[in-house]
Nucleic acid binder design. Structure first.
Lengths: 138, 138
DNA sequence: CCCCATTTGTCCGTATGTATC
DNA sequence: CGATACATACGGACAAATGGG
């Protein structure tokens, strides 16, 4: 549960891995607040920068959300609304540009689903709030 | 083309925007190496931390990829292979876990597509290499 | 193989701003 | 109001990886 300074993998990646484990194991449940940056530097015996990059990495994975002046919390898993896509659609996933993130009010680390319908129309959907469904042939 | 220190938007966001422009305009084509951190601090007259945060932001967007001791490159856009999903499937997008990123050899800033087929099988696909297609009703 | 220049990773000290409680 | 915590930004320093000669 510690950090190996001599490892090939960067310290901040190791710390991110450790925190991710603590999140996925349920020790840090959704809604829970992570230890403060100062605390983490002490716990793992590493520098500020490594801690901040680790937390930043988890943010970019959509696992946590940071509020200035308050701390970093494990993200709640939102309910997904179902969106039906018509046959003949093409679907890709990617990270949004800064502009798109702002317009869709997306948190850091949330991808978008890009749906190109057969009629040519393109739709961009927030990846954490949507589940696409293809119509079943009943 | 320059950075406004007194602006409300952080310097590193401004730099990220400028670099993103240079990438999207084609000045920095896929495969090209970005100027080094030291170079960027000179070009924009800012500190290294701001530069590093700007590049980090672009990484989290999947636009660039950094290798220690070498540099940061504009990501190549891979050809997407088409994957057909059967009717009645459910599709979501999210960022991969550390394990998944390792197994799928995914760069930072690349989401995965999760396809749950009607028979219950779940497939995890790299978001930058795949385009899902829903069978057209011909 | 070693040497070396380049580049990114990491740490530290410091400072100021801003949001929350 | 103050205490806490994160955000931004600068400076310096050394470690570690890469790649070329």
């Amino acid at each position: 549960m510690t950090v190996d300074q001599r490892s090939h993998t960067p310290v901040y990646v190791q710390v991110a891995d450790l925190l991710r484990q603590r999140i996925e194991s349920g020790e840090l449940a959704p809604g829970a607040t992570l230890p403060s940056e100062a605390r983490l530097t002490q716990e793992y015996g590493i520098g500020r920068e490594a801690v901040r990059m680790a937390v930043s990495l988890l943010r970019s994975e959509g696992l946590v959300s940071t509020v200035r002046g308050h701390g970093t919390r494990v993200r709640e898993i939102p309910n997904r609304r179902q969106v039906e896509v018509p046959p003949g659609s093409r679907i890709t996933a990617r990270m949004p540009s800064g502009r798109e993130r702002h317009e869709l009010q997306l948190d850091e680390g949330i991808p978008v689903l890009v749906v190109r319908r057969p009629d040519g129309q393109t739709e961009i959907l927030p990846g954490d709030q949507v589940e696409l469904t293809t119509p079943a042939d009943d």
